[in-house]
């Protein structure tokens, strides 16, 4: 799995939240890699651990959560071993975040440009005023914001503009990796399309890598290069987005793809229930078995390993078995 162009490698990351009734394993042994200049989508329903997994990568997990084990290798170094000061320097510089709900993540008492200047000067020290202004203007142009917002406050901007201001801030220090947590889900479709276009343009021009968290499969299909599916703290499948849509390997990925309503065909809807178990007391074996239409006895006995069933398509499901030639085939049930 070690790829020369891998920029970030997450291996067996475990993040637990302590509760009086025991730990909730919100991120339970998640492994994936992120390659240079790609957008990796991370999908799953609420509570599936998407934000917790990336919180582990950014090391922003607060009490009662804790990173239990695992490694997060960024640019050759395990950032989980960094001390707080080193980690502080790494954030924005190498690893930045476009937070969920940009409306509420900007400081309402500071102008947009002052907030971006703050990020730059905190990391690089005092800058000459002219150079700083020019640099911020360049950032604005990159994300398609007009120059007139330079001295505006967040409340004077529309939702789409605020979201692009957050993107401008996230690329201010030329990071290697940007985590975009539901960056477009509060926007309506036209604005969402503009913000997604902006992200694709940034990816192309700066060769930066994104982890994009979301639950809109339509948007994922439009934007990401590879897609990872999470369910209740575990990664179930990861594959190139075209392969995932053409031949989902995990029953849960199938359900996710089938339940996307389309504008081309009016058809009976596929009805699903949400996560059905108590996260403090997950089922034995496969985490998805209580909802799986193909559950077998073996599914309650052991947790399936992540195996590569097609080139670059990894899935954790007992349905896939090796045949006599050593290649994986999916059993029909």
């Amino acid at each position: 799995m070690r790829n020369p162009e891998t920029i970030l490698e997450v291996d067996d990351l475990r993040v637990y939240y302590a509760t009086p009734q025991g730990d909730v394993k919100a991120c339970d042994g998640v492994s994936f890699d992120l390659r240079s200049g790609e957008i990796l989508g991370l999908v799953g329903e609420s509570g599936s651990g998407k934000s917790t997994a990336t919180g582990g990568v950014l090391r922003t997990i607060g009490s009662p959560g804790r990173i239990v084990s695992g490694t997060v290798t960024l640019d050759g170094e395990d950032i989980l071993k960094y001390d707080d000061e080193k980690m502080r320097q790494t954030r924005w510089q190498k690893l930045s975040l476009i937070p969920q709900g940009a409306m509420n993540s900007l400081n309402p008492t500071m102008t947009i440009s002052d907030q971006i200047a703050d990020v730059i000067e905190t990391h690089e020290g005092r800058q000459p005023a002219d150079a700083l202004r020019e640099r911020i203007m360049t950032l604005f142009r990159r994300v398609g914001l007009p120059e007139r917002i330079y001295s505006m406050y967040p409340h004077e901007l529309s939702g789409g503009m605020k979201q692009r201001a957050c993107i401008a801030m996230s690329i201010a220090l030329d990071p290697l990796v940007i985590v975009a947590d539901e960056a477009t889900s509060a926007l309506d479709v036209v604005v969402q399309r503009v913000v997604a276009q902006t992200m694709l343009k940034i990816k192309r021009e700066l060769n930066v890598s994104f982890i994009m968290i979301g639950h809109d499969m339509g948007l994922m299909a439009q934007v990401v290069d590879r897609l990872a599916v999470m369910y209740s703290g575990q990664l179930l499948e990861i594959a190139a987005v075209r392969d995932m849509f053409a031949r989902p390997a995990h029953p849960y990925s199938e359900i996710l793809i089938e339940s996307v309503p389309t504008l081309t065909e009016r058809k009976p809807m596929k009805i699903n229930e949400g996560i059905t178990h108590d996260p403090r007391n997950p089922p034995s074996g496969c985490i998805f078995r209580l909802r799986c239409p193909h559950a077998m006895p073996v599914c309650s006995e052991s947790r399936p390993d992540m195996v590569e069933v097609h080139p670059e398509q990894l899935v954790a499901c007992h349905l896939w078995k090796k045949d006599e030639n050593g290649s994986y085939v999916r059993q029909s049930v």
Partner: peptide
């Protein structure tokens, strides 16, 4: 602008 759940059917063109 509604994103189509099909990686081979991208948004038609860019908008401002």
């Amino acid at each position: 602008s509604v994103p189509k759940p099909d990686p081979d059917n991208p948004w038609p063109g860019e908008i401002e």
